[in-house]
Design a protein around this nucleic acid. Structure first.
Length: 592
RNA sequence: GGCUCCGUAGCUCAACUGAAUAGAGUACUUGACUACGGAUCAAGCGGUUCCAGGUUUGAAUCCUGGCGGAGUCACCA
């Protein structure tokens, strides 16, 4: 059982016997701050009305009661209204034995619940960029965390493979491509297609200028540029299933998918299901007729269908165009319904940028009004933009940070910095490249995941790859260091398995306490879909262990029992570090 | 203009459900050490938590009103 749960039961028992019935909310337990003595602290203010005594007297009374009835408690002290309870060394030693013997420590029991998490959702007209990286890392990590909490998780990717933007790339490729292919150019498929998207924009702008020079208004020129008309014509042909257009579309999308696969693999993310919008974009029309029948939606004169959300503080929202074709919202309603029905989901999480907050607010509300209770189980994991030290990135100004470039950059920076520190001496090229990949990616991932998702963040590559401070490499380093000690112990023939009874030093108790918090941390991270909770915990653990490691020799301890106990502690810390990094999708090396 | 989110040390970020003197890292200053991995450790400096009210025994956190920033309000996705 969780230590905090155990304490709260003990306290609840004591308080109930003293003051009668209390609600669990009135029992407030927190870890004692390190400047005070004790392990857990009870805040007595909420109990004063029941005790009818001063905060100090109430705290003392409860403390006495607990000490008298529970032998695990070593003592207590009272400061203002705070009751600080200390647990005995034996108690912590027992906890440690328990942790050591627990398979999959920190992972919750199977819940039988199935949750879908949709993330990544790229457009197929250009390569992935820094914003997608935050999306992918968040999605993958939250999926890992939910799995650790015992849920069945379906990782889904909805590829936006159709629409005017793809047609733009296609038109530009036909006009200016001269039959270029990834093979002929040596370019990654998604980059090749992306280049023609840029090419389109260039010519589009030029044509607008020409038309305006010939006397057209700006608005007119924007609508009548030949290249745009060509793209629109292509979209119509696509919708009419024109064979030639479809075939080119398939070829170019194929190039993009090959490119994406490489990027996803480099980032270490994957999917259980891939949906293509070309196959789902017609969904949702039945929902529209359902809404019309129930009188929740209404039809305007031109035949378009709307919902009026002004009573909920929102606007009117279009659900079906006048010509009967669907819009984004229509599709999303349809896919949501389909997914809940087909997979018997208990929840769905959409990892989508905060520019779509409004969209999801509407989505949930519409489903709610239609009477689908599962609309409450839709969660929009909204995240903020990633900015760079040089400023914002803007795709039009070509200041986007390409995902592939960034990953390559992180790895080569990791190599430079490791080489400078002489860490790569004597390693084969293969080992070096493996380690630098882990470190470079670990730096990137940790730096992004440690920040609260909803906040706009600033990504500084140089700062992220630091081997000190709150960074991925620092955590990886701590893990490698512990592994090194354990390796040496094995070489010396020390068997540190099995139970040992030895006394913990205060610093060691602190570490055990932190280890005890791990399951609660995983649960919290899962409940809030916040990898940052895991990151903060792991950093804290590493820092604590590093300090301890510095002050106490592990292998040189003369007393064999103490030595073994310390090795066990180190091994457990390494286990938890590596587990929690796995929840962030970061691999930890055994040496680096 | 309406709605949503953000505003915390010079900088990058924490602070779970409201609790004790708001914490880390970095930068800066000082010091420790024949080192089981110095990619170390300790100490110092640094704050009116944007402002003003309110609720509460207690507010960075909740409420109201400002200020500043971001996003959104398409028959785009």
């Amino acid at each position: 059982m969780n230590t905090e749960q155990y304490i709260s039961e003990v306290v609840l028992r004591a308080v109930t016997s003293l003051y009668g019935q209390v609600s669990p909310q009135q029992i407030q337990i927190q870890k004692t701050r390190k400047e005070f003595e004790g392990d857990y602290t009870i805040v007595t203010f909420p109990l004063l009305k029941l005790s009818r005594k001063s905060p100090e007297a109430t705290a003392t009374e409860i403390g006495e009661k607990i000490i008298a009835e529970n032998s695990e408690f070593g003592g207590y002290n009272v400061i203002k209204g705070f009751l600080n309870l200390s647990l005995s060394a034996a108690f912590w030693s027992e906890r440690f034995e328990e942790i050591k013997g627990t398979e999959n420590y920190g992972h919750g029991e199977a819940t039988g619940r199935t949750i879908m998490i949709e993330y990544s959702s790229p457009n197929t007209n250009k390569p992935l960029h820094l914003g997608h990286i935050r999306n992918n890392l968040l999605g993958y990590s939250v999926a890992q965390i939910l799995k650790a909490n015992g849920h069945n998780v379906i990782k889904a990717n909805l590829v936006n493979d159709r629409g005017i933007h793809i047609c733009k790339s296609m038109v530009a490729w036909l006009r200016y491509g001269n039959g270029a292919t990834p093979e002929s150019t040596g370019l990654k498929g998604d980059h090749l297609v992306g280049d023609y998207y840029v090419e389109f924009d260039k010519h589009y702008k030029a044509e607008i200028k020409e038309l305006m020079a010939a006397g057209a208004s700006e608005e007119e020129a924007k609508k009548k540029a030949p290249i745009l008309l060509e793209a629109q014509e292509m979209l119509r042909k696509w919708e009419a299933k024109d064979e030639q257009v479809r075939s080119l579309w398939q070829t170019m999308n194929g190039w993009v998918y090959d490119g994406f696969d490489v990027t996803y693999k480099a980032l270490g993310v994957d999917f259980d299901k891939v949906y293509y919008e070309s196959q789902t974009y017609l969904l949702g029309k039945s929902i529209v007729s359902e809404g019309l029948e129930k009188g929740i939606f209404f039809r305007k004169e031109d035949g378009s269908v709307w919902i009026d959300l002004t009573a909920d503080g929102l606007d009117q929202k279009l659900l079906l165009r006048g010509d009967g074709t669907s819009v984004y919202m229509t599709q999303d309603l349809g896919t949501a319904l389909q997914r809940f029905e087909q997979n018997s989901l208990n929840g769905i999480i959409y990892v989508v940028g905060n520019e779509q907050n409004y969209h999801f607010q509407v989505l949930k509300l519409v489903l709610k009004k239609l009477g689908y209770d599962w609309s409450d189980d839709i969660y929009h994991l909204s995240y903020g933009m990633v900015e760079l030290p040089e400023g914002k990135m803007k795709s039009r100004e070509g200041t986007v940070v390409d995902a592939d470039d960034l990953v390559a950059d992180m790895i080569s920076t990791a190599r430079e910095m490791s080489a400078e520190l002489g860490k790569l001496d004597g390693l084969t090229e293969e080992q070096t490249s493996k380690i630098c990949t882990m470190v470079g990616l670990g730096a990137l991932k940790y730096f992004i995941l440690k920040v609260d998702p909803k906040k706009t963040m600033l990504f500084d590559p140089r700062e992220s790859i630091d081997f000190n401070g709150n960074t991925g490499p620092f955590i990886q380093y701590t893990h490698a260091r512990i592994c090194s000690v354990l390796r040496k112990a094995t070489e010396q023939g020390i068997d540190y398995g099995g139970a040992v009874k030895a006394d913990f030093l205060p610093e060691e108790i602190e570490i055990v306490k932190t280890l005890c918090d791990y399951p609660a941390t995983v649960a919290t991270a899962g409940a809030q879909f916040a990898p940052s909770v895991i990151a903060a915990y792991t950093y804290e653990l590493c820092k604590m262990f590093n300090g301890y490691y510095h002050d106490h020799s592990i292998l040189r301890e003369e007393c064999q029992t103490t030595k073994i106990m310390r090795l066990q502690l180190a091994a457990q810390v390494a286990r938890v570090i590596s587990d929690s990094m796995l929840l962030l999708g970061i691999s930890v090396p055994e040496r680096m």
